[in-house]
Write a protein that binds this DNA or RNA. Structure first.
Length: 427
RNA sequence: GAGACUAUGGUGUAGUAGCAGCACAGCAGUUUGUGGCACUGCUAGCACGGGUGCAAAUCCCGUUAGUCUCCCCA
């Protein structure tokens, strides 16, 4: 009985959700903004598989990162392959860059993507197991102008969507030359102070020392503020790169804030890293983020190719838009509503609908209902401009009544002339 | 992985132990082939399991789910 059936009702799997028609407007709006920017800047769209070899992510994202350690949706196929639902977009695209020989095309090569990603963690505010991102990647050029360009693209998209309360937090995490030195420096600094660290940081000290700079615990804050900062220890290649990136941002008048503690959760980043955060809210949530990854392609077995890119979280973007009061445009009302009475009329209304479709006149109907009252009531509620009434008499005469809903005025038109007449009245 | 809070028709809610109500939505109707207003009727609910008690939506325990915080991030 009812109780038993309730038990069997299915919910969306944990951390997943349905996108309902009322929200689809936001998705569409963001998609259009992203794809428009992509067209203008010359990015080609790429779609990669939802799952990839697990090793691709282990190697690119880094084996000791949170994503690899506890958030991957990994499984074995019947054939024994180890696969993983993609937790992020950069590694698959870099893989595709190699697999398809895209390095043979004129460089820099610009690619963009849009789609679902998966991380197995406990769902929270704007944090889902299946979430969506779009991203832009530029391969084959190490010039800092492209770091700035990527940031500019996201800034433009956010602005076009009506969201201006953001700032770009930016930092440089150095490269293979300067990062190991800095890492040693950092370890030296923290080694004698290990006992003062929070328990997570004690773990970080061993597994991923750069992340020490990311801790938000109060007890670590003071240590952190006096810790060496990587921007003071960049090598002769990274320092000017970072400096000129910032100069480009100045020129572009993109608001940014140096955040020497920004290190990001993925191992493949080098030089520039950035996050777009909201300035209007106390808790800073990253809406979009990215950085440079000059070594990833080579790390994945390709011919060395520098790259820079970023991705935006669509769910978070939508939430921001809703917060600042961006409202869906009201749906267009159907131009006409088809009302029918009797079985012959019902048949005739099907062919009428087909003609409406060809003429691209939007319509609504309630063909399953037989009462004229009920049908007009719905026509009224849908705010149709005209009702097309086919009754017993009209279906025999081959005519149709056109009723203007606002005034109640009616005229009778022959079936053959109905579309022409409608076009005139609706224009 | 750790913790906090919540759970009543489709939606939003009332109900601190005594017949589970209201609003909106949905469906049908208020005599002939014409909508809006109004009225009538109908549909549909205490997440699940156990305990206390004459009596449980209400108190207790457990489970599940959702929300949120930490961690980390989109």
């Amino acid at each position: 009985m009812p109780k038993k059936r309730q038990k069997e009702l299915f919910q969306p799997a944990k951390g997943t959700f349905d996108i309902l028609p009322e929200d689809e407007w936001y998705w569409d709006k963001i998609y259009k903004a992203a794809s428009k920017a992509a067209d203008v800047y010359g990015f080609g769209k790429i779609e990669t598989p939802i799952f990839e070899n697990t090793n691709l992510f282990l190697r690119s994202v880094g084996e000791t990162t949170d994503i690899a350690e506890k958030q991957m949706y990994s499984f074995k196929t019947r054939g024994g392959d180890a696969l993983t639902l993609r937790p992020e977009g950069t590694a698959p695209i870099s893989r595709a860059f190699i697999s398809n020989g895209l390095f043979e095309l004129p460089q820099p090569l610009k690619l963009w993507y849009w789609g679902p990603f998966f991380r197995h963690e406990s769902p929270q505010h704007l944090r889902y197991r299946e979430f969506h991102q779009f991203g832009f990647e530029i391969f084959g050029d190490r010039d800092s102008v492209y770091d700035a360009l990527i940031i500019q693209i996201f800034a433009n998209i956010l602005k076009e969507l009506g969201w201006a309360d953001f700032v770009v937090e930016i930092n440089s995490v150095g490269c293979q030359t300067c990062r190991p030195d800095f890492r040693r420096l950092l370890l030296n600094y923290y080694r004698s102070r290990q006992r003062l660290l929070c328990k997570d940081c004690k773990r970080r000290f061993v597994s991923n020392p750069l992340r020490l700079l990311d801790c938000k615990e109060e007890k670590c804050a003071e240590l952190k503020s006096r810790a060496p900062q990587i921007i003071d220890h960049l090598c002769s290649a990274c320092r000017p790169h970072f400096k000129s990136t910032l100069e480009f941002l100045d020129d572009l008048e993109i608001p940014y804030m140096l955040n020497p503690h920004l290190v990001r959760g993925l191992d493949y980043y080098s030089k520039t890293v950035f996050e777009f955060v909201s300035t209007s809210k106390e808790d800073k949530m990253a809406i979009a983020s990215g950085g440079r990854y000059d070594n990833l392609v080579e790390l994945l077995g390709g011919k060395s190719a520098p790259a820079v890119g970023g991705a935006a979280g669509i769910e978070r973007l939508i939430a921001s838009l809703k917060e600042i009061g961006v409202q869906p445009e009201p749906k267009e009302n159907p131009k006409v509503f088809v009302v029918q009475l009797g079985s012959l009329a019902k048949r005739k209304s099907l062919s009428l609908i087909e003609d409406l479709r060809k003429a691209e006149i939007t319509f609504a109907e309630s063909l399953g209902r037989d009462s004229i009252k009920a049908q007009l009531k719905i026509a009224d509620r849908l705010k149709a401009q005209l009702a097309l009434i086919i009754g017993q008499k009209e279906s025999l005469d081959n005519t149709i009544i056109i009723r203007e809903m606002d005034s109640g005025n009616q005229e009778t038109v022959t079936r053959a002339k109905i579309i022409d007449r409608l076009k005139k009245r609706l224009s």
